[in-house]
Write a protein that binds this DNA or RNA. Structure first.
Length: 417
RNA sequence: CGGGGUGUAGUAUAUCGGUAGUACGUCUGCUUUGGGAGCAGAUAGGCCGAGUUCGAUUCUCGGCACCCCGACCA
């Protein structure tokens, strides 16, 4: 995309009242816009990142047989009364229409997915399976905070799995641990993300969270470096914390943010909706469920918190809004710089690489500063100097390393996603 | 929801009980062209409501919004 066509602009300064690094940088760089506390618009650059994260998650969910659907946000009160959560869930948004009918704006979708799949499950032969969606969730957080890390409306991937018994559910649940680890590895926060033992609520000993170390987080976890797992502070009793895997006591405390979680629902939701199947003996059995969530915006914000630096955003290749940022210096009309830029742009595009081309008539300093702020992994400068030397100047955003390379070398460095 | 802080132009800010100033942005012209450049001109502002006052952006009260701490967060 030609940057001159991009309708958003960067800002030199962050809004005075923002403290969170993710909010400051994402707003300055024009990736998001805040409509109200905890409610954000994703602008073209930000949406590209969000969609890249979404696609990685989609691939991983599909890899374990997840079938994608899309359920509504507007959900009838009756479904929520069936599980009792119409009254017990404090952060439920409730809306009333002109006829007096009440609905919830979905904060999660157990109340919808269970009656949905009930239509299709009758025999043990129909199990197991898993279905998921990417959907806006609404939660009336009393205090939205930390930029996009804790919002009132946010996009979440929620998957639900359905099984004949606990053994089967647990086997799938265990598989999901690996799948989740893949997701966080691929989006670029694998090194600082830990499988964490957390509260299981009233119907399971533990749930598991994926916690990423960052001072912007609001949780405290105790990490066992030997096992690469952690324990959430919420389940530590009497200051006694030991690694649930090896029993080791040598844990280190870190502040972290929960980027995903997996939960054994068992029959918590199948029971109230009478979700059952007939086993081989023709007897009715309750369907056993698991659920698995990842907040996309929170993942995006966490990447910014972990990787962003004093100059701006720093995107990993896998989720960057563009693969390459061409910065043309001094080009205009049909001069040589513009022509060379166009040529490079066309070649990269034809290789399937996504390119942002800064074709604007601005001074070098401004373009460099903005390029650093936007944070595309590879910057390529095209100027009269580089043309004279028959090379391109490349800069690695993450390391700051600058070098001159020939066309072939440059093309070899750029790979399509 | 409890506590604290802050509300001035698109952004960041200054001053002041009596004409609201600066920088960036934006627009016009010229210059400049490898790290948010310069000159000249232009554009645009006091969160809302009530009160005190001759006069309120400023003081008082109420509301609202945003940020922070806490509580909450299947």
């Amino acid at each position: 995309m030609r940057q001159s066509q991009l309708f958003t602009k960067t800002q030199k300064e962050a809004p005075a009242d923002e403290v969170a690094k993710n909010a400051k940088l994402l707003i300055r760089a024009g990736f998001v816009d805040k409509l109200q506390a905890g409610v954000y618009t994703y602008l073209p650059l930000g949406l590209r990142v969000l969609k890249n994260i979404e696609n990685i998650i989609r691939e991983e969910m599909n890899s374990v047989g997840g079938q994608e659907i899309l359920m509504p946000s507007l959900q009838p009160k009756e479904n929520w009364q069936t599980t009792g959560r119409w009254d017990t869930m404090d952060d439920l948004y409730k809306v009333i229409d002109i006829s007096g009918r009440e609905n919830a704006l979905g904060p999660t979708h157990e109340e919808i997915v269970v009656p949905l799949v009930k239509q299709f499950i009758s025999s043990y032969r129909d199990l197991p399976f898993a279905t998921y969606q990417f959907q806006n969730k609404f939660r009336m957080e009393l205090r939205a905070k930390s930029g996009i890390l804790r919002g009132r409306e946010f996009i979440m991937k929620d998957m639900y799995s359905f099984h004949r018994n606990e053994t089967d559910m647990i086997a799938y649940y265990e598989k999901m641990k690996g799948v989740y680890a893949n997701v966080f590895e691929r989006v670029g926060i694998g090194a600082t993300t830990f499988l964490t033992f957390a509260s299981g609520g009233s119907f399971s000993k533990y749930s598991h969270e994926f916690q990423t170390i960052t001072s912007a987080g609001e949780d405290t976890i105790y990490i066992c470096d030997k096992c690469r797992v952690a324990v959430n502070n919420e389940i530590i009793e009497d200051q006694k914390h030991a690694c649930p895997e090896c029993g080791g006591k040598n844990l280190r405390a870190e502040t972290s943010v929960e980027v995903g979680n997996i939960f054994e629902l068992k029959t918590r939701f199948s029971a109230p909706f009478n979700l059952s199947y007939k086993d081989e003996d023709g007897k009715d059995q309750s369907v056993v469920m698991g659920c698995y969530g990842i907040g996309l915006g929170r993942v995006l914000g966490t990447v910014v918190e972990v990787l962003g630096d004093e100059k701006g955003l720093v995107w990993p290749d896998a989720i960057s809004p563009f693969g390459v940022h061409i910065v043309e210096l001094g080009g205009s009309g049909d001069d040589i710089v513009r022509k060379e830029s166009q040529k490079l742009y066309d070649e990269l595009i034809s290789k399937g690489i996504e390119v942002l081309w800064d074709d604007r008539d601005l001074r070098a300093g401004e373009k460099f500063a903005e390029s650093d702020l936007i944070g595309i992994p590879l910057r390529v400068v095209v100027s009269s100097k580089t043309i004279a030397s028959e090379s391109f100047e490349i800069k690695n955003r993450a390391t700051g390393e600058v070098s001159l390379v020939g066309k072939d070398e440059l093309m070899a460095m750029c790979k399509a996603k």
